[in-house]
């Protein structure tokens, strides 16, 4: 049952992302991407990471994508006819390189490797303990980085 859901979600992600990157209208692309991220959040949940799934929805689909929308609207970029979209000249190197990367990855994955070590689902308690005990310093660093980003954004955004 869960396997079938995984493959369906995978198909949704791939198709939605494909639409997102080929969509000329940026706002539409964002919406496709939000769809894709929702599906990815469910996959996270299926993989036993409920907290990450929740954060994916809140931060990615909620905050970051909305930030994109804000900027698009602020800069009035919602007119696809004004922005030249990539033609065949732009797509073929992208396809080629992406294809090479994908083919290499798949080829590498076909090599048999050591079996899974096995492990159960990870509870929220374990996750939180690891996050704040083991990676406490990393959390502090990330929070400082967010602060810097905030200051930087303020500096760049001020009117002269």
């Amino acid at each position: 049952m869960e396997q079938i859901i995984f493959y369906i979600l995978a198909a949704i992600i791939v198709i939605a992302t494909l639409f997102a990157i080929t969509e000329r209208h940026t706002v539409h692309a964002i919406v496709y991407l939000v769809t894709s991220f929702f599906a990815l959040a469910v996959i996270f949940y299926l993989l036993g990471a409920p907290l990450v799934a929740v954060f994916e929805v809140i931060i990615y689909a909620g905050a970051i994508m909305v930030l994109f929308l804000f900027v698009i609207m602020m800069l009035d970029l919602g007119h696809p006819e004004k922005v030249s979209s990539p033609g065949w000249r732009d797509w073929w190197p992208a396809t080629l390189l992406g294809g090479v990367l994908l083919a290499a990855t798949v080829l590498l994955l076909t090599v048999p490797h050591a079996g899974p070590a096995g492990g159960g689902a990870i509870g929220v308690r374990d996750f939180a303990r690891a996050l704040f005990r083991q990676y406490g310093i990393a959390v502090e660093v990330i929070s400082m980085q967010l602060l810097f980003a905030l200051v930087g954004a303020l500096y760049l955004g001020r009117r002269r």
């Binding site: 990471a49 990615y60 070590a117 492990g119 990870i122 990330i142 967010l146 954004a153």
Partner: peptide, 29 residues
């Protein structure tokens, strides 16, 4: 993280998310 039952993968996923939000805010600015 799921495969080996270790929490580190999830922690890093969260880190990536935090870092992304910082990066996106700067980049959009």
């Amino acid at each position: 993280s799921r495969l080996w039952g270790a929490t580190d993968g999830q922690v890093f996923a969260l880190m990536i998310m935090a870092m992304t939000s910082a990066e996106v805010s700067l980049a959009l600015a």
